[in-house]
Design a protein around this nucleic acid. Structure first.
Lengths: 107, 107
DNA sequence: CAGTTATATAACTAATATATTATATAACCC
DNA sequence: GGGTTATATAATATATTAGTTATATAACTG
């Protein structure tokens, strides 16, 4: 499974996106991340494992806690891939502009 | 399922990403899209359905053909969500810069 | 109209993902 | 050391996904 497979797959889950959004506010422990969800701790633990596997988060060891934070690398990779599509869409818009411009000159 | 669920989920599959990459070169029919893959036509048909459901592609009817092209809306939505993470990561980098700067002043 | 081409749908199978409960580990606190 | 807290893992049930083959639909082509 490519990194992009794992990254996009990880982002496809709303719980995991919410976790990332929470981490956007700063580092947090597993318990802190689990708190807002109506889900058991093991479920969150697994979600974090998926996010870590996708390279989207990093974890430190701090006593019995495992604080998580966002990882830059995977986000950059995703960005890069999306840039390809963005570029094409922009190009298509330009072509549309051309069409409209041509229509105007024919008026 | 939110639009982002569907969009990220659709992007998690390498075949579907390849299809999008192909569409970045321009409109294509189902058969044209299926050609490079070692996969049956119904399999591709399903992938296209997933991409369409996620708002990533649009299709026209042209006789018996169904030419597909990239859709801007979903890509924009994804972009917007990622922007949130990007922003935080940038902020973290800045904090790291601060730390490094502080270390230097203490030398 | 008959045959072919482009695409979609249905029935089915195999693999994967998500959640749960129960339990393990390991650090912390008295 | 004994109890509590933070987290991970295992076993299991269920749902979802991705592919297959077989078949349907509907438009083109001679």
């Amino acid at each position: 499974m490519s990194n992009l497979d794992a990254a996009f797959s990880a982002l496809a889950d709303p719980t995991r996106r919410a976790i990332l959004a929470r981490l956007a506010l700063g580092e947090a422990t597993v318990m802190e991340l689990a708190e807002p969800f109506e889900m058991t701790q093991p479920a969150i633990s697994r979600h974090l494992k998926v996010l870590e596997g996708a390279g989207l988060i990093l974890r430190r060891v701090e006593g019995t806690k495992r604080p998580c934070r966002l990882a830059p690398a995977a986000v950059a990779e995703i960005d890069q891939w999306l840039a390809m599509l963005r570029q094409t869409l922009a190009a298509n818009y330009n072509r549309l502009d051309d069409v409209l411009a041509e229509m105007k000159t024919k008026e």
